[in-house]
Structure formats: C-alpha cells, structure tokens
Simulated assay, not measured.
Amino acid sequence: MQANEIKNRLKSLIEEASTIDSNLAQKLEEINRWVKNVKPGSLMAKPFVSLFLQQIIADAIVWLRLKSLPYEEEQLALNALKPTLKYWYGYLFPKWLNQKDPKFYIWKRKLMAGEFSQQDAKLIGTISSSIENFGGTVVQRYIADLSMATDIIVSSSQTKPLCIQLTSISAKFNQEKFEDWHKTLLFWEIERGLFLSYNPSITDFINQIINIVLDNSDNLKIGIYLKLNL
C-alpha cells in the first residue's frame, strides 16, 4: 500500500469503526493523529511505520467483519481460524483494544524516529517457516512484539497458543529483561509464556530453538512463565 492509500484507509476504517466498535475507532484515531502530518514520501521511507500501519489496517478489517456478525456466527468464524489467529482475534487483539497500552506511546515514538530495527527478523522468519512445515501455526504482530513482549505466538498440536520471547542476550545479563517480560505477560493476562535466550554461535541453534518451542507449545502448563537458556 502506498502512503496516501494507507491514510485514506485509516480514515475510512475510523468512520466504519465508530458505529461498530468505539475502542477500535479510538485506537485508529490515535494512530491517524500520529501519521497524518507525515508527508507521503517520508512515511514510505520509514519501513517499520509503514508495515505496522498495513498490519493494523488488515487487523481492523478482520475485526470489523467479525464484530458485524451476530454473536453465534462470530464465534463460528473465530473457531474456523487457525489456533494462533483465533487467539489473536479472540483474545489478545481485543485486549489491546479495550485496555490502555502503557507502552504504545513509547514505541510509536521509536518507530517514527527510526530507533526500532528487527535485527532478528530473519531468524524469526526461519523459525516460523519451520514450525509451519511441522504442522504448527504462527502469528507475528508489532503490537504483540512491542506492547506484549512477544516475538511470536505459536501453536503446535495444542489449541492454546504459546507466547514466546527470543533474545540473544546471555543468561548472565538478561535477568532484568526477563523480569520485564514476566510483568508484561501478567499485565496482559497472558496465561503462559516462554522466554528463550539463545547463543547464535552454537552449532544448530535454530533447530534447538524450534524443538524447544514446539515442545513447550504442547506441554508448558498454564500459569508457567519459563526462562530457558541455550
């Protein structure tokens, strides 16, 4: 999507949401105020801002379609989704819409200032593709990453997905990050999570991550926020 198309789509979705879900309309209006004075060329020169906007537009479209359905049909539509998408649209996304996000203003500023870089994007893409090849499902969202400390949401054979944070910070130095991650998951009432610290210099570390993620997706109990180090 080009910048003008993004801005026009945001405005039309705000208007549509105003009659269906005021919380979505409010969030979209906040995002619209954030970008409305950014020139189209400047907006397209900020790839993470542009990608986030396209992502939130896509989510808003799905959400409005769901909320336009009678309750029973909405539930049938949610149940027809893959487990990770059902978890996103049925739980995490509405939570984000209905709650004040204490990190939203921080990461909006960082995105616009070019201070955000997905250094692990290639790794996460490889992991996600492998999980899907094994029959699992994965969801990635900037909202989950930046507000909910969740790089990927994974479901292997269980219908209850697992929120996962990956970090290459060594175990010796990542305790503060782990504590912030744990508090964030509790704030969003995410019922279980995996904090996985990896060493990219270890042979076959990607396959080790994949095996650990799949195993914990199936077996990690509700109420457990597990920290593991490779």
Score class of each variant (00 low, 15 high):
144 A>F: 04
116 F>Y: 09
115 E>W: 12
160 K>A: 04
82 K>S: 12
131 I>E: 09
129 S>Y: 12
155 S>I: 03
77 A>M: 12
109 R>D: 11
82 K>Q: 13
62 V>P: 05
146 L>H: 00
76 L>Y: 09
165 Q>A: 09
104 F>R: 08
56 I>D: 01
143 I>E: 03
41 G>E: 12
116 F>V: 14
33 R>S: 10
85 L>G: 02
57 I>K: 07
146 L>D: 00
72 E>G: 07
130 S>D: 14
42 S>M: 14
129 S>C: 06
151 D>R: 00
70 P>K: 02
100 K>L: 14
81 L>E: 05
164 I>G: 00
124 I>N: 07
33 R>W: 13
107 W>R: 06
74 E>H: 05
59 D>L: 06
35 V>Y: 08
39 K>L: 15
40 P>H: 13
88 W>N: 00
77 A>F: 08
131 I>T: 04
51 L>P: 02
153 I>E: 01
135 G>R: 09
64 L>A: 10
117 S>F: 11
150 T>R: 00
54 Q>T: 07
134 F>E: 15
53 L>M: 11
75 Q>P: 05
70 P>R: 02
74 E>G: 01
152 I>N: 04
72 E>N: 08
133 N>V: 05
87 Y>S: 04
56 I>T: 09
101 D>L: 12
141 R>P: 00
105 Y>G: 04
35 V>T: 06
41 G>D: 12
71 Y>M: 06
108 K>G: 05
78 L>P: 09
41 G>S: 15
84 T>C: 10
158 Q>D: 05
119 Q>W: 07
94 P>F: 12
143 I>G: 00
122 K>S: 08
151 D>F: 00
92 L>T: 07
125 G>I: 02
128 S>D: 06
89 Y>K: 03
71 Y>K: 06
81 L>P: 04
43 L>C: 11
97 L>D: 07
127 I>A: 05
120 D>M: 05
55 Q>K: 13
126 T>M: 10
125 G>A: 05
106 I>D: 14
64 L>I: 14
56 I>Q: 04
135 G>D: 13
165 Q>K: 10
148 M>C: 07
160 K>Y: 06
76 L>Q: 09
84 T>R: 01
129 S>W: 11
72 E>P: 03
146 L>A: 09
100 K>T: 15
141 R>E: 07
83 P>H: 07
132 E>V: 13
99 Q>E: 15
94 P>T: 11
78 L>F: 12
113 A>H: 12
157 S>Y: 11
96 W>I: 15
90 G>Y: 10
111 L>K: 04
125 G>S: 07
51 L>V: 11
144 A>L: 14
84 T>F: 09
122 K>M: 04
76 L>F: 13
100 K>V: 15
153 I>D: 00
70 P>A: 01
151 D>W: 00
48 F>N: 10
94 P>N: 11
128 S>I: 00
76 L>I: 13
161 P>C: 01
122 K>H: 08
44 M>E: 12
93 F>Y: 15
114 G>V: 14
46 K>S: 14
32 N>W: 14
93 F>L: 12
96 W>N: 03
78 L>Q: 02
59 D>F: 13
77 A>S: 13
37 N>S: 13
129 S>F: 10
114 G>K: 11
51 L>I: 13
44 M>I: 15
145 D>Y: 05
88 W>Q: 03
152 I>W: 00
52 F>G: 01
64 L>R: 05
39 K>P: 01
